[in-house]
């Protein structure tokens, strides 16, 4: 992020804090689509969960806007941080709720082949991402969601290719372990 971006985001933040809804709408329009895509990826494609997380993320952003410091990172990255935490809380709540549901008969315990399999897979992906440390989640996001190459990730993070490949390898393994853990 350049200095110009930092100053622009700082000016927008101050305008929004002063109650300028026009500035807020501009910010919202700029980042909504990308954040929506990230939240869907983060929630494993679960649409209802993604909608809840997305709404809660924007509301939290408005409430805590005074804490946003453009010098520490871009507004989108800040939103992603909020979305990540919100998704983590929402998925854990969803897991607890799933555990409380007990099928009435053994026959009901068998999910239907088509929809429930995809949903279960999405829930496992979302839960596995929740279990990952932040730096693992960040490198997986850069690789699979942003579709960046290893070179681009290394440049963005200021690390060597070897270090990023190693980090990516460990992140993948951690994800696989977590994904298998939720294969109940």
């Amino acid at each position: 992020m350049t200095n110009g971006d930092t100053w622009r985001e700082r000016a927008t933040r101050d305008a929004v804090l002063a109650g300028d809804t026009g500035a807020w709408r501009l910010w919202f329009d700029t980042h909504f689509e990308r954040l929506s895509a990230y939240v869907q990826w983060r929630c494993g494609g679960l649409r209802d969960l993604a909608d809840d997380v997305l709404q809660e993320t924007w509301l939290t952003a408005v409430r805590r806007l005074s804490a946003f410091d453009p010098a520490k990172g871009s507004f989108f990255n800040w939103l992603c941080g909020i979305a990540s935490n919100t998704a983590r809380n929402a998925i854990r709540t969803r897991q607890r709720a799933n555990l409380r549901i007990r099928p009435l008969t053994p026959k009901d315990d068998v999910p239907s082949a088509d929809a429930s399999n995809a949903t279960e897979k999405a829930e496992r992906v979302a839960s596995a991402l929740t279990e990952l440390p932040d730096h693992y989640e960040a490198v997986l996001r850069a690789k699979y969601f942003d579709q960046q190459t290893v070179e681009q990730i290394a440049k963005a993070r200021g690390e060597s290719l070897k270090a990023v490949e190693s980090l990516l390898s460990r992140a993948r393994q951690a994800f696989r372990d977590a994904y298998e853990k939720f294969n109940v």
Binding site: W24, R25, Q55
Partner: peptide, 19 residues
């Protein structure tokens, strides 16, 4: 990345609530 599937009205509802 999951295919974008916006729920109709969610965007406007979020914008309205945040404003």
């Amino acid at each position: 990345p999951k295919p974008a599937r916006d729920t109709p009205g969610v965007r406007d509802e979020i914008l309205r609530r945040t404003e």
